[in-house]
Amino acid sequence: MVRPAMSEEGHRPDPQDSEESEQDRIDAEHRGFANAAWSIPSYILSGMAVYGGLGWLLDRWLGTSALFPIGILVGLALALYLVFHRYGRTS
């Protein structure tokens, strides 16, 4: 008596069903979007950290003070380029 209601509740059909692959495709797309949205801030932060850090080290070595902000901006631009390349393709 309980069985039919329960199997109806699970929205996933049998593995043999063709709708399973459709569900898999939707899941994969959703997963890609979620992964991208969560990893964008860390890409931008790491771009700024790598090239800002490089600029900071060069500043200490050469005794200048302009390379740190320039490095941060360059890293920001590179990280944005990477993000656009990874997630911005129209497939």
Binding site: L45, G88, T90
Partner: peptide, 17 residues
């Protein structure tokens, strides 16, 4: 979704600056 991600990246960059 793609355009959302690109706009989000640009906006987030401002916050991180």
């Amino acid at each position: 979704r793609q355009n959302m991600l690109l706009g989000f990246a640009l906006t987030e960059a401002l916050a991180l600056i």
